[in-house]
């Protein structure tokens, strides 16, 4: 029976039990996410500094971002966080088929996100709304508007790379799920990937208002 496979996972020699190993892995993941917060933190500080220095420019420049696309992507990512969470809980209960189904759904939503991002980026390229020295747009009247787009591309770009990495690790746990490696007694990797994916989602929830909804 597919749904009730028993999974025997042998913990590594330096742990006393599988649960011990799970707790350690989870703590490691949380610490890793803290380092991610600090890495994005640098960009948020730069954003705050330049928004304080050039408030009018930020306001004018942000009108050239497509709010509806950003909003759509927000919905897409939040939904993907939900499907990811459902996949983790299915794996914990040993429901392999639904876990696989939700993982595939998460992957599809991630692709949608990148697809929308692709259209947004190509539109910016077309309008000459590019970082720093490559900025050629003439519609925006405020000086230094290239800075806004530098920040836009750096922040969404770094986030996009995280989405790509997320898709990579989701594919990896999908493969392992298909092989029947996870079950109620062992689901550490899928749980950790879930944490990571929620973090990627959370970053976007900050990026969207900061970049698209400048008051």
């Amino acid at each position: 029976m597919l749904q009730e496979e028993t999974v025997i996972h042998h913990h590594a020699h330096h742990f006393t039990s599988a649960n011990h190993e799970f707790e350690a892995a989870k703590q490691g993941m949380w610490i890793f996410l803290v380092t991610e917060v600090l890495m994005f933190g640098g960009l948020f500080v730069a954003y705050g500094l330049f928004r304080g220095l050039y408030p009018e420019m930020f306001h004018e420049a942000h009108q050239h971002l497509a709010v509806h696309m950003g909003a759509l992507n927000t919905v897409v990512l939040i939904t993907s966080s939900l499907t990811m969470a459902l996949s983790v809980s299915s794996a914990q209960k040993g429901h392999k088929v639904s876990s696989v189904r939700y993982l595939v759904l998460t992957l599809i939503l991630a692709c949608c996100f990148l697809g929308v991002k692709y259209f947004e980026y190509s539109h910016k390229f077309h309008d000459g709304l590019l970082p720093g020295g490559f900025f050629t747009n003439t519609e925006i009247k405020s000086p230094k508007a290239s800075l806004f787009f530098s920040l836009y591309f750096m922040m969404t770009g770094l986030h996009g790379i995280h989405v790509l990495i997320g898709m990579g690790v989701i594919s990896w746990i999908l493969r392992r799920t298909l092989r029947g490696e996870f079950g109620p007694s062992y689901y550490t990797p899928i749980e950790l990937v879930g944490l990571y994916w929620h973090f990627v989602d959370l970053v976007w929830i900050y990026l969207f208002p900061l970049l698209y909804l400048v008051g």
Partner: peptide, 10 residues
């Protein structure tokens, strides 16, 4: 990419 975040010229 000459993003200009640290560059006074930009």
């Amino acid at each position: 990419l000459q993003i200009g975040i640290f560059d006074p010229k930009l």
